[in-house]
Simulated scan of single mutants.
Amino acid sequence: MVLHAVPKANKMIANKNRYSEKERFVYAKWIIDYMRRHARTRTRVYGRENIPTDSNYIMYPNHQGKYDALGIILAQDKPCGVLWGKKQAERLMSRQVCGLIDAVVIDLDNNRDKVRAIMDVTRQVRSGRNFLIFPEGGYTDNKNELQEFQAGCFSCSLQSKTPIVPVALFDSYKSMNSNTFERVDTQVHFLKPILYSEYGELKKKEVAELVKSRIAERLAQIKAGEINESYELIG
């Protein structure tokens, strides 16, 4: 698969004038789905009706592991970019996916690069693109527990005035984990969008706390077994 996909992806990346954003995104999803199947992962997708159809948007999920962005991208019909950590983006296949979806790569250890990346994402969102940003930055062994949300990334929403879509990930850390070869079931929950009219007067830190509280509420409901909504199954 790698011998086939890497050259084709590289060709599409090098000739973006010949391949539309949609075509490149579809091929990126094909690669991601192969990785999902190879990782023996199934994903339950909740709340797709909450994804805006009349506006571009920024998604802010919690962060657990390698599969997080992949599970969210697979649930997208329209192309979206990702603010992707440099260390993860340099891996084989991740590098190709990043290029195909025009991801913005960020060095989380370099404050100047953080500013550059946030400005780049803001510019792209203003131009009409959808984006995925992990406000926790990286991940450790936090599993289904939330980490601190970094307020700086929410300037992308405050400046672009686009809807915020909180996304709750559950058990995503179990996928692509070398400690298990068993089948893994993960969950992606797209929560009700937060419109600019609701968050526009808030400061970045207050927006971060608002989004975090929405995700925390959904995680608590999942853990308590209170989710009875229908879902779509990927896998």
Results as ranks from 00 to 15, higher is better:
residue 114 K to Q: 07
residue 178 S to C: 08
residue 219 L to S: 05
residue 182 E to L: 14
residue 135 P to N: 12
residue 202 L to T: 02
residue 79 P to N: 14
residue 56 N to G: 03
residue 155 S to K: 08
residue 85 G to M: 10
residue 54 D to Q: 09
residue 101 I to Y: 00
residue 154 F to R: 01
residue 18 R to Q: 12
residue 60 Y to P: 09
residue 207 V to I: 12
residue 197 S to F: 13
residue 192 K to V: 15
residue 198 E to G: 04
residue 78 K to Q: 14
residue 206 E to S: 15
residue 217 E to A: 03
residue 189 H to K: 12
residue 72 I to P: 05
residue 130 N to Q: 07
residue 121 V to N: 02
residue 33 D to H: 11
residue 145 E to W: 05
residue 15 N to R: 13
residue 105 V to H: 01
residue 93 M to K: 09
residue 169 L to V: 00
residue 142 N to C: 14
residue 92 L to T: 03
residue 27 Y to S: 02
residue 140 T to M: 15
residue 87 K to I: 04
residue 210 L to H: 13
residue 135 P to I: 08
residue 121 V to E: 00
residue 186 T to P: 10
residue 74 L to Q: 04
residue 100 L to G: 05
residue 130 N to L: 06
residue 151 A to V: 04
residue 95 R to N: 12
residue 172 S to H: 06
residue 53 T to Q: 15
residue 192 K to S: 08
residue 192 K to F: 12
residue 85 G to A: 07
residue 30 W to T: 15
residue 199 Y to D: 04
residue 148 E to K: 11
residue 215 I to K: 06
residue 76 Q to Y: 08
residue 16 K to R: 15
residue 127 S to C: 14
residue 119 M to W: 04
residue 202 L to Y: 12
residue 42 R to M: 10
residue 149 F to M: 01
residue 79 P to V: 10
residue 8 K to I: 10
residue 185 D to L: 02
residue 67 Y to K: 01
residue 140 T to H: 09
residue 176 M to K: 10
residue 34 Y to F: 15
residue 219 L to D: 06
residue 49 E to D: 12
residue 88 Q to E: 11
residue 218 R to K: 10
residue 157 S to Y: 04
residue 19 Y to A: 06
residue 47 G to R: 06
residue 57 Y to R: 03
residue 153 C to A: 10
residue 203 K to V: 13
residue 41 T to A: 13
residue 41 T to Y: 09
residue 12 M to H: 09
residue 229 E to V: 15
residue 170 F to W: 05
residue 107 D to F: 01
residue 215 I to Q: 02
residue 78 K to A: 11
residue 50 N to Q: 10
residue 178 S to M: 11
residue 181 F to Q: 14
residue 126 R to G: 10
residue 138 G to P: 10
residue 189 H to M: 13
residue 73 I to K: 11
residue 57 Y to E: 04
residue 155 S to H: 07
residue 117 A to D: 03
residue 166 P to D: 01
residue 229 E to A: 15
residue 228 N to C: 02
residue 61 P to D: 07
